[in-house]
């Protein structure tokens, strides 16, 4: 009888072992499949004409979209990063425990992080495009995106600030620095890496965003010459190509460029975050 219990026990271990391995293989298999598929279909179509400065229906250049992506990202960060970091400073350094306003801020921030991008797109279209009269524009797109990434920037900045040991603050106070000087000269520099890692993740979200941009920044395929002009980012470019259905090959080539961007963004963020944790290991 002891034997059967033992074999049963062994069988359970075996089954669960295979199940966990299988799940991991599926997850990574899917990733490899997607990346491999995009590379195989896309890399052969990465022609020099795809990187022409002007988009025409002949060359289907992705260069204007790439430049627009950089512009859009920079604009959204210029708005969201100071706002998010300052908000995090308030939450981490100034707010008192059990403050009601803080509870509301946390609740709304969490709400923001759960709102789907299409809802941001709808709101941006109603508010920035129509109510403020900016039309389909880089500006409207950037503002919409900045609200979208605000909770991400706030959360990572607050975590980074909270991770700074209190000794730093006490030391600064002890040397006679005021609160403001302590925050800007001591706490913020110490938290910089964590904040940066979060900002880079936010860049990743911007680069991958489509639904929030179609009805705010529009889909014009040229480099915008001023902030009130429409422009499409790489992701929007790719979606437009797929919905037109004429330039699938160029779509895959765009996907390759997007994947490269995402890999670089992830690697940079991971490296920064790693050095951050490297101190105590």
């Amino acid at each position: 009888m002891g034997e059967t219990v033992k074999t049963k026990k062994k069988a359970f271990e075996r089954v669960m072992q295979s199940a966990t391995w299988a799940a991991a293989v599926i997850t990574i298999g899917v990733l490899v499949l997607i990346v491999g598929f995009v590379l195989v279909r896309g890399v052969p179509h990465l022609k020099p004409s795809l990187f022409a400065l002007r988009y025409t229906s002949d060359n289907v250049s992705l260069m204007p979209a790439l430049i627009s992506t950089v512009i859009m990202t920079a604009a959204a960060l210029i708005i969201a990063v100071p706002l998010g970091v300052f908000a995090a400073i308030y939450l981490a350094e100034y707010a008192r425990r059990g403050n009601r306003v803080v509870a509301v801020i946390r609740m709304t921030t969490e709400t923001l992080s759960g709102i789907p991008s299409i809802v941001y797109g709808l709101f941006g279209g109603l508010f920035f495009v129509v109510a403020l009269g900016w039309g389909y524009s880089v500006l409207a797109g950037a503002f919409t995106l900045s609200i979208m990434i605000l909770p991400l920037v706030m959360r990572s900045s607050e975590e980074a600030l909270n991770a700074v040991p209190d000794m730093y603050r006490e030391g600064a106070f002890g040397l006679g620095a005021g609160k403001l000087r302590t925050v800007f000269r001591i706490v913020l520099p110490a938290a910089m890496r964590g904040i940066l890692a979060g900002v880079i993740l936010a860049v990743g979200r911007i680069v991958g965003e489509t639904a929030a941009l179609i009805y705010t920044a529009g889909t014009v395929a040229q480099v915008p010459s001023n902030p009130l002009q429409s422009a499409r980012t790489l992701s929007v470019h790719m979606y437009s190509l797929s919905s037109e259905g004429l330039h699938t090959d160029e779509g895959y080539a765009t996907a390759v460029v997007l994947l490269v961007l995402v890999v670089v963004i992830n690697a940079v963020s991971a490296r920064i975050a790693k050095r951050l944790g490297g101190g105590d290991k």
Partner: peptide, 9 residues
């Protein structure tokens, strides 16, 4: 990090 359009494609 992979954009949803890439998943869609």
């Amino acid at each position: 990090g992979i954009p949803s359009v890439v998943y869609g494609f």
